[in-house]
Design a protein around this nucleic acid. Structure first.
Lengths: 205, 205
DNA sequence: TCTGCGAGTGAAACGTGTTTCGATTATGCC
DNA sequence: GGCATAATCGAAACACGTTTCACTCGCAGA
């Protein structure tokens, strides 16, 4: 529709285009992982992805769109890997904490990447609504999966209003503590603790 | 100490310098109020404050430092105005909600300004730690004041570990919902509701 | 096969945050 | 008052996100 949205994998016609998109996101992740937000320079991404600068901007209309799209892809992959086996834990709270802890540890293993993606997400304005929404969907889906019994196929879950509200708040708390961890205002332990507190308050059975 | 911190009001020697600092922050607020984050352009701030660009950078080492310092001053003023009379409300939760609602309404009255200050706060990295800490102190102090009985002079409040933790979480939730409001992902009503839920969960008597 | 067109290219240009530096002015000290 | 030092000024330069544009290329349809 408008030229203001990132091109998604689905709406890309040819295999060559999908490959370009993949190369761009790969380059983004690689540069972010090496030097954080500042190291993701549009010229560098274009060069590394072997694509002209103008093309990069055709696929992703800004650096923020690019990074938030990269974040969405990361969460998508995390979801896929999570789908492979049931989430361990006896209660919804246990399972949610398991899933969030697992993801938090993964993020903390690559601080530069996490810094880049988190700051982009926080800095995004209304023009990035679609990409942000995609990220939110992945997080919500992940939490839904954890909140429900392990044996329900994820395609059959139909979350209640309440479920979604709770997932939203938990996602907010998770993100807020990640932001603080990224900026050195909170330790890894603080992040775990925030999540623990929030989940137990919101998901008491 | 390092050249990487904003010059605070206190460490400025002469009246002329304090006046320059004030002019700079005034110009920042005015421009932000008119056009949001993007309208706060360093050259424009310098010109409006009648100060050279280099001087502006001597007082505030980056646009983010500048905006977060402006945010700190706003909260400081809110605190002062709040100190003038006791906070109404019978329970801690009521008083906290009163204070936050009052501030939220004030912020929502000037969306551009709020957008500028909020986004700067969220985008800030570790180098802005001092300024961010100042903001946190003001918010914490405001909440402390509300959580304790109305007649205790604020200078005599000595908050417990627990109090501080709770205030921190409430502050996080408040900020997170403001961010979403600023980016159009949540309505004013959503903001009120988030605060309401968080406060009642965390401050049940 | 030819042709027209949209995608991609390469390079330059622009805007704004940030840095730099020599000249000028203010300030504190004798 | 005269001087040393620091603060401020003015203006240019630099860095990186973003835009623009003339050009090329590959391919779908005639």
């Amino acid at each position: 529709m408008t030229s203001m949205n990132s091109l998604t994998f689905e709406e890309l016609g040819s295999a060559a285009q999908r490959d370009r998109r993949k190369r761009i996101l790969d380059a983004t992740i690689a540069l972010a992982s090496k030097g954080g937000f500042d190291a993701v320079q549009m010229r560098a991404v274009a060069e590394r992805a072997d694509v002209a600068l103008g093309t990069l901007y055709r696929y992703f209309p800004s650096k923020i769109h690019l990074l938030v799209s990269a974040l969405a892809r990361e969460f998508e992959q995390a979801n896929i890997s999570l789908d492979r086996k049931p989430v361990p834990g006896d209660t919804a709270a246990d399972r949610v904490i398991y899933v969030l802890s697992r993801n938090t540890r993964a993020l903390q293993r690559d601080p530069n990447l996490t810094e880049a993606l988190t700051r982009a997400f926080m800095f995004a304005d209304a023009s990035v609504a679609n990409e942000i929404h995609a990220v939110g969907m992945h997080v919500t889906r992940m939490l839904m999966r954890a909140m429900h019994a392990q044996d329900v196929p994820s395609s059959e879950i139909e979350p209640t209003e309440e479920d979604i509200a709770v997932a939203k708040v938990i996602g907010d708390v998770w993100l807020a503590s990640l932001v603080q961890w990224v900026t050195g205002r909170a330790s890894a332990a603080d992040v775990s603790k925030s999540i623990d507190v929030a989940v137990r308050l919101l998901l008491r059975d």
